[in-house]
Design a protein around this nucleic acid. Sequence first.
DNA 1: ACCTGAACACCGTTCAAGT
DNA 2: ACCTGAACACCGTTCAAGT
Lengths: 197, 197
Amino acid sequence: MATRGGKPLLSREDWTRAALQALERGGVAGVAVDRLAKELGATRGSFYWHFEDRDDLVVAALEMWERESTTDLLPAARAVADPLERLRLVVSTVYESPVDRIEISLAAEAHEPPVASVLARVTRTRLDFRRDILVELGLEEDEAERRAWLAYGFYLGHHQLRRSRRLDRRRPKSLQYVVDLLVGQPAGATAERSPTR
Amino acid sequence: MATRGGKPLLSREDWTRAALQALERGGVAGVAVDRLAKELGATRGSFYWHFEDRDDLVVAALEMWERESTTDLLPAARAVADPLERLRLVVSTVYESPVDRIEISLAAEAHEPPVASVLARVTRTRLDFRRDILVELGLEEDEAERRAWLAYGFYLGHHQLRRSRRLDRRRPKSLQYVVDLLVGQPAGATAERSPTR
DNA sequence: ACCTGAACACCGTTCAAGT
DNA sequence: ACCTGAACACCGTTCAAGT
């Protein structure tokens, strides 16, 4: 590894990994070039050798997050043959896993330049994944699309709600009832209209 | 109105209203004392006569938002006698209304001091409102609580999804299908388990 | 090729001094 | 009672100069 004055030279990846950690702790606003430079024992000036500007760094960190939170998870899920089982697996591993702080902070800046493209790509991947399962389960294309919207919209809001300690206590223990409603009958589909009993 | 040197003196409310507008445009991060001072033709020093610090201003603006987005809307909704109709009204007026930028940006800072208490209060109010409707519709307390979580979680995520122009095009035209699923039969409740057909 | 150091703008906060 | 103006810390960005 190349060094200078005893200290190792910093690579673009070193900066990116430090930024991803800052992203987890404090969201997009928490990525401060000045602070990272201090942590890494370099100057701000050095940063601008590796990156165009702060947005460039944020995008690099978000793409690391994209891989670890979405792209890398798909193969394992696709390996499950039965679609209903696949949906249950996604709900228990993804919906019920610890809250992803990055996910939440991205919402606020969904249309800011550094965030927009990465977030749109991730979202499309996840919506499609859910819709495809619902189609496999026998729903019509349109209805599957609508329910995938519900499923993924709920995923986002659910993690948002969980951010508060007090509200998290109100959270249902299991989310499998969501799967049941997602693939179940809407009111009015049967003759009568009295729910549950 | 009191003046000095031709200019009107600024009140706490003047600052708060300006902050609320900044909040709508740029989220919590968009509330900058320096910029507001310039807009209002005052100095930053003057700001600290009216407020403890920036957080104090943010809280004041959020409480204005709380009134206009939640507290003031409840009486009209409560006036609808039929619970199913009341639920449909909420979905069409609140879920299908323009995206509330403040709502979204609060998620990212849900546990930061200025945001936490206001947001928790608003959220509890809205969750309770939905649960009470579902109980009136005949659901058991526990099931109503679970489905209210789904309903409100979806509300939050839905508005988050809508923030992107491209994703918003995928949004279902009407959300009444959500009401139908919320009050409908889960899969497995009937003898068979084949959905829709 | 990679980094330092100094400069500038922007913003939060404090405080002595003004009216 | 309400405000100004100057000071300081923090952070993004630029750039000439160093190795």
